[in-house]
């Protein structure tokens, strides 16, 4: 078994206007990115808007097809997977998305939402699924009766707890998260990040964590990739990237972060 669970090799994505009446213009959202995530580690991808970080994550989730390059999980190119192998991949890699308001079907109860992955993959029977959902709700710190509630009856922080629960209910190997806490208040964000970290450690998950927030990325990541205009400008161990940034852009980015601890140190 290789040390790297996820390998992204020279991946590019060009978005072009499609359609007969539109002028074909190619925009390179992601441009030749190569990254790897070791088993059990978390890769943080940080960048500003338009850096291509979300597009890259969606390619790793097999939601957007790369224009060139490959994404490999366990040494297998995910875009060549079919049938049972594809289903196994869908079980192995789970997403957490940004927006708590639109992450869930508003017409389904939390129970239905959490049970869906188990149903899709034919795991367990009715009772065992229900038991699993109940146990998981408790694990992410939600009351038992949340199972019958609808998403709009929960707060943003509770919804992101549900998103974490849904992402781990299939006991995946990797969780790929896109700005999972950026819509939350800081106090709630801190709790959700702690929960994410705890569960990730408990289950030995491999993770990719995409955010525009350097401080959040720093807190959760083992390695960090800094993206700009579709390319990775700096890639390395978290402490090294923050402690001794090499690239000009990384330095600018770090300097631009308003941070109360800078003030506290200066005084």
């Amino acid at each position: 078994m290789s040390q790297d669970l996820i390998r992204i090799r020279a991946v590019s994505k060009e978005f072009g206007a499609t359609g007969w009446f539109k002028k074909p213009v190619g925009v390179k959202a992601v441009d030749g990115v190569t990254l790897a995530v070791k088993r059990g580690q978390t890769l943080g991808i940080v960048g500003e808007s338009g850096s291509g970080k979300s597009t890259l994550l969606r390619m790793a989730l097999r939601l957007i097809k790369p224009s060139s390059g490959t994404v490999e999980i366990d040494g297998q190119d995910i875009w060549t997977l079919q049938g049972a192998e594809l289903k196994a991949f869908r079980r192995k890699v789970q997403p957490i998305f940004q927006n708590p308001a639109s992450s869930f079907n508003p017409r389904q109860s939390i129970g239905q939402i959490l049970v869906a992955p188990l149903e899709v993959h034919g795991i367990g029977d009715r009772d065992s699924r229900r038991a699993k959902v109940a146990a998981l709700l408790e694990r992410v710190g939600l009351p038992k009766d949340a199972i019958d509630r609808h998403p709009h009856q929960l707060s943003g922080g509770q919804k992101q707890r549900i998103a974490i629960a849904r992402a781990v209910i299939l006991q995946p190997e990797a969780v790929l998260a896109d700005e999972p806490t950026s819509a939350l208040d800081v106090s709630v964000q801190a709790q959700v990040l702690d929960l994410f970290d705890d569960i990730r450690r408990d289950l030995g998950l491999t993770a990719i964590f995409v955010s525009h927030n350097l401080a959040v990325i720093r807190q959760v990541s083992d390695q960090i990739a800094v993206m700009r205009h579709g390319s990775v400008v700096e890639y390395g161990e978290a402490d090294q990237v923050f402690g001794d940034p090499q690239h000009e852009y990384t330095k600018t980015l770090i300097a631009a972060v308003p941070d109360h601890r800078k003030l506290m140190r200066a005084l």
């Binding site: 969606r58 789970q94 869930f104």
Partner: peptide, 9 residues
């Protein structure tokens, strides 16, 4: 949630 549904399989 539609994107999630696809990603779940």
């Amino acid at each position: 949630y539609v994107e999630s549904a696809r990603a779940i399989g």
